[in-house]
Design a protein around this nucleic acid. Structure first.
Length: 652
DNA sequence: CTCTCCCT
């Protein structure tokens, strides 16, 4: 049942569907107001009576906050009372007064640990479900299970057109074949964005970096006012295009062109101050050109964009279950992604989208992006599901089931860490506690062990610091000065103790932003590390892990790291690169590591591997081989000739 | 000789 309508005109229709069906799929285009309006319709219709709560999930923290703000404002309410939000580290809701609550979908999954049937909610709306983020998919699978036990719980899944049928079939519990008995309905709501004309190239583009530059200049010469947004795949490409455009802009102003160009790179790793420039208003004599990664596809919205340039590619995470290695791969985008990019040109007035590929090539693109659930390491997911009482994860109702081998990999790792027993059951207390940490299982294990090694104070800091990206800030025009400052913190043992140094120095200097600036450190990131550390510390207290310090002895800290990360070990190879102990694969030290370009240690452990041009270990620390045998005898055995080999631990 | 993005 597809009904086309505008939201406000059919308020009663929406309410009728929520009344009649356990699940309603709302196909809402951007700008139809579904996120802000539907929760208010439900509130007014009495869905939050008797202390019940209407919950609305978002994939991103900023979205949860900003949309909660808007709804509170519309209702003339103070944020945190009738309308509130809950995200990690920031709970702006009242357990008694809040009727409409916005939260991240990760937070919703966490809430299930304390309240498995989510009893306080009468309706849950999963917004942006078409993005298929990891936590949205986990929530979807769990909610289907909850719905069987709670017939009164209503679900609204807000999605783009493409996936409506898939969601409908997943949530429809009617097996009779009689559509009158469906438990799931679909409603389509038109959006209120402006039309965007799409242009294709006549022939394939050999070099999209060059073509992006040319297209920007062409727009500048031939089109009327309006800012430009160009999509590229990564930092390197963004910087390249930005610098080529900067050269062009300079020569234009030399020739006295009256209209100027302001070139602005945008990607997540860019220092905060430089990111903010993208949102600054410019005089009417200036055309803004934002060169961005896919951060501009969903995470941020820039006003005034009229022209979009789309290179057809995106960098995505991929997971290889046979090697347990994650990689970043430049991949063709999906049709859904292409239309999302084009839509960025039509938010303020009619726009144009220049696709740097042919219409035939567009037709060959996949309809939608592979869900994150199918291209990630599943150890944290499996641990969560086990903690939520899902005994047979292989038979869990996934909207898109991940590869079985990825699940087996995850089970093996969790078993090796002691979080699961050999029947695959969550162990108590280790597994139960591991699941409670908001960290990947290896970090959780390392934290739980730190009491035994007598270095919990240092380990909590290290774990917190490792959650923050780009602690070292490298401004484009001060690369050498930054490197010089960063070297002052580096230690021979590797990245973990280096980050411990940075944190301790930050505290010693009273968390000064001035001091961070002088040493090219990410001030906001370090403040976040302080908050993360506090949360971890609270959990450690809860589990009675003693507060101990190694008092300057690095070895106990390194051994403690090994106790969590023994599976990620490598030894030096005579070629100068490294080989994994697990299966003898070639690895290299990531150029961001303090060990890069230094005398290579014989044995190392690392937090993760990413594959770009090579397989790179990120966050690397030197260890002794004897520690591996001592701390993970179930994983490694000392071979006769003195080298280590791995025993594959298997879970039945 | 280099990290897409996001979350507990």
């Amino acid at each position: 049942m597809f009904v086309w309508l505008f939201l406000i005109q059919h308020r009663n229709n929406i309410l009728y569907l929520v009344e009649s069906f356990q699940t309603v799929i709302i196909v809402g285009e951007t700008g139809c107001g579904k996120t802000t309006q539907i929760p208010q319709y439900l509130l007014e219709a009495g869905w939050a009576a008797e202390g019940k709560v209407i919950g609305v999930t978002q994939p991103r923290r900023v979205a949860a906050i900003s949309v909660a703000n808007r709804v509170a404002e519309e209702r003339g309410a103070l944020l945190g009372h009738e309308v509130g939000y809950t995200i990690r580290f920031d709970d702006c809701s009242d357990p008694h007064a809040t009727r409409i609550k916005f939260l991240t979908d990760g937070m919703l999954v966490r809430e299930m640990m304390a309240d498995p049937l989510l009893k306080k909610y009468s309706v849950l709306m999963l917004d942006e479900a078409h993005e298929r983020t990891l936590y949205t998919d986990i929530a979807i699978g769990l909610l289907k299970k909850i719905q069987k036990k709670r017939r009164d719980l209503r679900l609204i899944v807000a999605s783009a057109t493409l996936d409506a049928k898939k969601f409908h079939d997943f949530f429809n519990l009617n097996e009779s074949g009689d559509p009158n008995k469906d438990t799931c309905g679909i409603l389509t709501v038109e959006g209120r964005t402006f039309p965007v004309d799409v242009f294709y190239t006549v022939s394939p583009v050999p070099d999209y970096v060059k073509a992006t530059v040319e297209t920007v200049m062409k727009i500048h010469e031939t089109e009327d006012d309006g800012d430009v947004l160009a999509f590229l795949t990564g930092q390197e490409e963004v910087e390249k295009v930005a610098s080529l455009l900067q050269d062009q802009a300079r020569s234009l102003s030399r020739y006295g062109m009256k209209k100027h160009l302001r070139i602005l790179p945008m990607y997540s790793g860019l220092p905060y101050a430089e990111q903010m420039k993208v949102f600054e208003r410019v005089p009417s004599s200036v055309r803004k050109v934002v060169v961005a990664t896919n951060i501009a596809e969903t995470s941020i919205t820039i006003n005034g964009i009229v022209f979009v340039i789309d290179c057809a590619f995106v960098k995505l995470r991929a997971y290889n279950p046979s090697t347990a290695i994650e990689s970043l791969v430049v991949t063709p985008i999906s049709k859904a992604s292409a239309s999302q990019r084009a839509g960025r040109a039509g938010r303020n007035r009619p726009g144009k989208c220049f696709r740097l590929y042919t219409e035939e090539d567009f037709e060959k693109l996949p309809a939608s992006t592979v869900p994150e659930m199918q291209r990630t390491n599943l150890a944290p997911v499996i641990l969560q599901l086990k903690a939520l009482g899902i005994d047979n994860v292989l038979r869990f109702s996934f909207l898109s089931p991940p590869p079985a081998q990825t699940m087996v990999q995850a089970l093996e790792l969790l078993y090796a860490l002691g979080g699961l027993d050999h029947y695959g059951r969550l162990t108590d207390p280790t597994g139960v506690r591991m699941a409670e940490f908001p960290l990947s299982p290896m970090f959780a294990k390392m934290l739980l062990e730190s009491g035994n090694f007598g270095c919990s104070k240092e380990i909590v800091t290290i774990a917190a610091m490792m959650q923050i990206q780009n602690i070292f800030v490298v401004p484009t025009n001060q690369k050498k000065a930054a490197a010089r400052e960063h070297r002052k913190f580096a230690v021979a043992e590797g990245d973990h103790l280096t980050m411990l140094n940075v944190y301790e120095a930050f505290i010693k200097h009273q968390k000064s932003s001035q001091w961070c600036q002088e040493h090219f450190l990410n001030y906001k990131g370090l403040l976040r590390a302080v908050t993360v550390r506090e949360q971890l510390r609270r959990l450690m207290n809860k589990f009675k892990v003693p507060r101990t310090s190694s008092e300057g002895d690095p070895d106990v800290i390194l051994k403690c790291i090994v106790s969590g990360f023994f599976a990620n070990a490598a030894r030096i190879h005579h070629s100068g690169s490294y080989r994994t102990l697990r299966d003898d694969r070639e690895l290299h030290i990531h150029p961001n590591s303090v060990l890069f370009g230094e005398k290579p240690p014989k044995w190392v452990v690392f937090n993760e591997v990413v594959q770009t041009s090579k397989y790179y270990m990120r966050d690397v620390t030197a260890v002794e081989s004897s520690w591996l045998v001592e701390l993970a005898p179930h994983f490694y055995k000392q071979a006769k000739h003195g080298s280590l080999a791995s025993k594959r631990s298997r879970v039945l």
